[in-house]
């Protein structure tokens, strides 16, 4: 279901392959938009699929791009890894115009990938996919002991929290002192 052409630069997007459409094609030609992640690989995605993302949907509505303008100006998501954006695009294509099922079993099982996906989906404001991802994150600790949960989610102890807080305060104090000194220097 991917609509990606690998290695295409965001500055000059080549013609990406189009995602296969459903059997009942809409009568009105569908508009397409282009997105890329950190790896600059451009993904062509239909407006219907992008409706899942409140962020992109809002951008599209505000911009009123023509097809040509959309192709020339892919939406850059430099904070999202290419493979993660690919997953998001695939999910949006698969669930285009369909009611979302109560469970989604195709989410990554590796915790770092899932973590990155959660951050991306939260940023792109894809509510249903975020719910699935959060369920999956919650499932990671089902039936685990507290210490196993600590390890999986890297939860600091009270002592570590306190030390981190002290450190943050110290850093903030130093920064404030630095700013005061700089301001005094400027005044002179």
């Amino acid at each position: 279901m991917s609509s990606t052409e690998q290695g295409t630069s965001s500055a000059a997007p080549a013609e990406p392959t189009t995602a296969p459409e459903s059997a009942a094609a809409p009568e009105v030609p569908e508009s397409f938009y282009y997105v890329h992640g950190k790896d600059k690989v451009v993904h062509k995605v239909s407006a219907g699929a992008l409706q899942h993302s409140a962020l992109i949907h809002g951008m599209i509505s505000n911009l009123g791009y023509t097809e040509e303008q959309a192709k020339a100006n892919p939406f850059p998501f430099e904070n999202i890894d290419g493979d993660i954006l690919q997953m998001v695009v695939d999910w949006c294509n698969q669930h285009k115009g369909k009611p979302t099922p109560p469970e989604d079993t195709n989410l990554p099982k590796q915790k770092e990938k899932l973590f990155d996906l959660v951050l991306a989906v939260n940023y792109l404001e894809i509510k249903e996919l975020l719910t699935y991802c959060c369920k999956q994150v919650a499932m990671m600790v089902k039936g685990k002991s507290p210490e196993e949960i600590r390890e999986i989610w890297m939860i600091p102890t009270d002592a570590e929290d306190e030390a981190a807080e002290k450190e943050a305060k110290k850093r903030a104090g130093k920064e404030a002192a630095g700013e005061t000194a700089a301001a005094a220097g400027d005044a002179k």
């Binding site: 939260n122 959060c134 989610w153 890297m154």
Partner: peptide, 29 residues
């Protein structure tokens, strides 16, 4: 995966999807 690195609303959504058993055990951490 560091839970605390997730945005607060996402952390809350994760907790919302947990059973009270797991939340109770989590509270000891």
């Amino acid at each position: 995966m560091k839970l605390s690195k997730l945005p607060l609303l996402v952390q809350e959504e994760v907790l919302h999807n947990m059973s009270y058993t797991n939340l109770f055990l989590l509270s000891f951490l």
